[in-house]
Amino acid sequence: MTPQNKLLKKECLPTFVETLVKGGKLLYAPTKENERIEFKLIENFSEIYLDYIQTTKSIKSIVFPPIEKLFEYVADKEHVEIKDVNLNTIPETIVFGAHPCDAASFKVLNAVFTWDCNDEFFLTRKDKTTVIGLSCKNHDDYCFCTSVDLNPGSTEGSDILLTRIENDNYLAEIMTEKGEAVYKLVKNLFEPAPQVDKNAFVTQLPKLFDLNDLRGKLSFEGLSWMQQSLRCLSCGTCAYVCPTCSCFDIQDIGNQTKGKRVRIWDTCALPQFTLHTSGHNPRHFQNERWRQRIMHKFSYEPERLHVYGCVGCGRCSRACPVNINILENLIEISGGNK
């Protein structure tokens, strides 16, 4: 479809959101509670906090939940019955107010979950999720979306992208059919869009390194992976707050007669991730695991899946308990500011 621009006046925003909620869709939006900014399920517009730079956790849990039930089973010695999850019960969901970095992350997840064979759990969730993005008014020192070829007003991944323009009204760029479907539900709230220079209303974030330079410099053996990662405590925070980290474990919950098999988040930062039963571990030392994290995102994923595994949201750096700042390391590897 051809994208179309509309104007959504600020006084119409609450009606917009609440109409969608009343229409039976689950709506996640950023909220602020005790200084913690997180996406939460919303009932009223007043719960929403749009004036944020970044949430702690990303929106990936909406399409790739921390626990995903794969099936249930009942079993005895002679019989095993596997009960499928009815994917039709996955609710229609709207993510409201996600910044362009988050919106772009679904493309990366999609690349993993459709590589050769389709993961229908992810795909169904993604298909049922509409992203109403929000361009960034502000950024902080951790943000680097412009360095990974995105920008604070990027429409990539958003079904509708809102940008706050004059008089706190919103420019709505309706990008996809899913976006149009939402638009049609609340069409009367929109007005024709004025001619605006969107760029003048989004934050200006300078590019701090060049992706091609970075990829060219990445090398398995040749870099100071140990120097960069000695501080690392080997926890999984970076991966779990990351919008594009998608590694998982498969576990059974229950016993041999009744239970379920689930997929849960896992991370290359933990030594158990690659530990063989024999005790051998291909990535025994943390510098090897840190290398895997960087190489996977900036070398292997581009090579194998044609996407970079990073959207420059900076969450990993903000959440790291020992201030391992990925931007600092990426600038160092790529050879400094360009």
């Binding site: 956790k57 080997s234 926890c235 999984g236 779990y240 988040w265 308990p321």
Partner: peptide, 22 residues
């Protein structure tokens, strides 16, 4: 809790090679 185990990782006394959760 997202089970990132940052609590365990930052704790000097959580040094077990094989943590009970693993």
């Amino acid at each position: 809790c997202i089970r990132c185990y940052a609590c365990r990782a930052a704790c000097p006394n959580c040094y077990c090679d094989a943590c009970i959760v693993d």
